[in-house]
Design a protein around this nucleic acid. Sequence first.
DNA 1: TTAACAAATGCACTTCCATTGCACTTACTA
DNA 2: TAGTAAGTGCAATGGAAGTGCATTTGTTAA
Lengths: 137, 137
Amino acid sequence: MKTIEQLLESKQIRVTAMRLLIYKFLAEKKVAVTLSDIENAFEKADRTTLYRTIKTFEEKVIVHQIDDGTGITKYALCEQGCNCDIKTDLHLHFHCNNCNETICLTDHKIPQIKVPDGFVSENVNLVVKGICDKCSS
Amino acid sequence: MKTIEQLLESKQIRVTAMRLLIYKFLAEKKVAVTLSDIENAFEKADRTTLYRTIKTFEEKVIVHQIDDGTGITKYALCEQGCNCDIKTDLHLHFHCNNCNETICLTDHKIPQIKVPDGFVSENVNLVVKGICDKCSS
DNA sequence: TTAACAAATGCACTTCCATTGCACTTACTA
DNA sequence: TAGTAAGTGCAATGGAAGTGCATTTGTTAA
Ligand SMILES: [Mn+2]
Ligand SMILES: [Mn+2]
Ligand SMILES: [Zn+2]
Ligand SMILES: [Zn+2]
């Protein structure tokens, strides 16, 4: 079990106080978060720092971006050793129309999708919308 | 074969010059369009009118909205007698990473997606990204 | 045919999220 | 410990989406 420090260093990311805090925040959350969510959690920090931290995490494949159709991009931690950058490891996302939360269904891989002749598939985004387990019970 | 006027009237939409023009514009396009695309095509018309026309078309299920992950919502005409409002008739969309165009693959229906126990699926958005037929040849 | 009403259009303005330039501070490295 | 590269904060910008209100256009019924 790596520490967060070790994880960041292994990805050539400098360890800073802010980055550790943001990482921990993401790790505690079970759901995908928006930039505003992070902003609200760290009111003393500047929005730009949070923004660029997330962008750094994204580049280094520590978080992945989720477009759940709400118009606001969300982010969630990648799994250990995930390869979401190179198209393997495409799991689906679920967006709850009731509580508005979006979660990764990491063990629900996206099925192979057939496209017409001449088309080349490089990536797939699959979002299921409905009612989540917490809201349906 | 209905005229456009008849189609609009059958959906309780008043026929206006602007609406006819916008409908024709959408019909000629083979790809999904953004509001800006429409705006550029009709420079004398006001953005708001175009915006509200599209919204009206959407409500009356003449066009459907497409979220292709670019962050800009696109629109495309519905098929004759489509039921994209009531979840049957969910086709997939293809977004070309090269020419940035998005098209409806209307005869590629979205497969049944399994979700975990407790989750209820109401709707699915499936976007395949890659290289389109025009760009790959 | 026209008066009255409802819907459509145009203009101005607002909000929200994403993104950037630049100055300043902090952290690594020689 | 000085020098340099990266991180952070502040201010500003841009784009897309959405709204309030006045004006124009279209429909309907007297
Ligand atoms: Mn995910
Ligand atoms: Mn479509
Ligand atoms: Zn929920
Ligand atoms: Zn293309």
